[in-house]
Deep mutational scan, measured.
Amino acid sequence: MFYPNSPQTSPQLTQIPYGQQYAMMQRQIQQPYHPFATTEPQARLYPYHYQGPIQQEQGGFITQQSTAASPQYVQMRVTPVDQSIMSGYPNQTANGSSSSSFNYNIHPQQQQQQQQQQQQLRHHAMPVGSVPLQDDRYRKQLIVNYLAPDVTSTDLHELFSRFGELDGARIIYDKQTNMSKGYGFVYFCHAEDAKEAVERMSGYEFHGKWLKVGYSTNPLNIVPSNSSPYVHAGSRGAAG
């Protein structure tokens, strides 16, 4: 039997160049792979992502010199942007860049009308829970959420009447099932009393439920100042 490094198959040491006398086997001759043993700084910083320098080929596509990437890492192929796409944008300079302001050559009167329309939209648009300043009635009506099913309009009136005089209180019921929808409205005579009720009743436990109280901004629920107070009856038909 002959071994790869046996004296019968191995040459004389004098015939082997210096430095390879003890590297006779194939696994010894093959050098191990060192990912950080390279002179390129990109490979030292990113050993798993770097795959060699990027070269520009004919046709405008950018390719990489090395083989496919590892399945664990996804390499994105980048193509140059066609400058003709950006030619339609206004205020574009000769080098292809555009300024931040756009001039669509709008007539001054049209621009003024658009600004007025935007101001009107901001004036009428009102986020949930906010209180408008032009109508004091919005500051007097509250919406009470997360009410228990057994709470009546009379219970709601008695709960909030300790903060001040009320114009009314009612629970909203479903017309088909005649069941409470879980929320109601309270109408105060003074805005200061309503503000105190919002601050003190939010998070209050009532009939096993934690109440959420806020201003009601729905104009359909506003009680006119010259109208008669609501009837605080315990029956659902009268309260709904």
Rank of each mutant, 00 (worst) to 15 (best):
V198Y: 10
F206E: 01
S87A: 10
L156Q: 04
I222E: 01
N91G: 12
V81I: 08
Q109F: 12
Y22I: 07
A68F: 14
M25E: 02
G19C: 07
S66M: 12
E158D: 12
Q30L: 15
G129S: 08
Y215N: 00
S202R: 07
Y3M: 11
Q72R: 07
Y46A: 07
L45P: 07
L121S: 05
F206V: 02
E57H: 15
T217S: 04
L133I: 11
Q20I: 05
Q8A: 05
Y173R: 10
H207Q: 04
P149W: 04
N145D: 00
T38V: 15
Q83C: 13
F188V: 04
Q119N: 13
R122C: 13
C189S: 06
M126Q: 02
R27Q: 14
G59T: 08
Y187G: 00
S153T: 08
Q110E: 13
Q51M: 12
G59P: 08
I62A: 02
S202N: 08
Q42C: 09
A68D: 12
Q12N: 04
V74F: 13
V128R: 08
V74E: 04
D135S: 03
Y187W: 01
Y48R: 05
I62W: 12
F185I: 00
D174P: 03
E196D: 09
R200E: 06
Y146A: 00
Q110D: 04
T9R: 04
T177E: 01
Y230W: 07
A69F: 15
L147S: 01
G96N: 04
I29V: 05
F160T: 03
V213A: 02
I16F: 11
I222A: 02
D135F: 07
Q118R: 10
V81N: 01
T14H: 03
G203S: 02
R170T: 00
G59Q: 11
S87K: 10
S6T: 11
Q31K: 05
F206W: 14
P149C: 06
M86S: 03
D150E: 09
Q113T: 07
Q65K: 05
S202F: 03
L147Q: 01
I29W: 14
Y3W: 14
L156D: 04
G240D: 05
Q111Y: 13
P80H: 10
M76H: 06
Q115R: 09
H207P: 01
G240P: 05
Y173K: 06
F2N: 05
S97T: 12
D174M: 01
P71Q: 14
L121H: 07
G203Y: 02
Y146I: 00
R236T: 03
Q119W: 15
L159E: 03
P224T: 05
N95R: 06
T14Q: 13
Y18R: 07
Q134H: 11
H124R: 08
R236G: 03
R122V: 13
P229K: 02
S235C: 05
A191E: 08
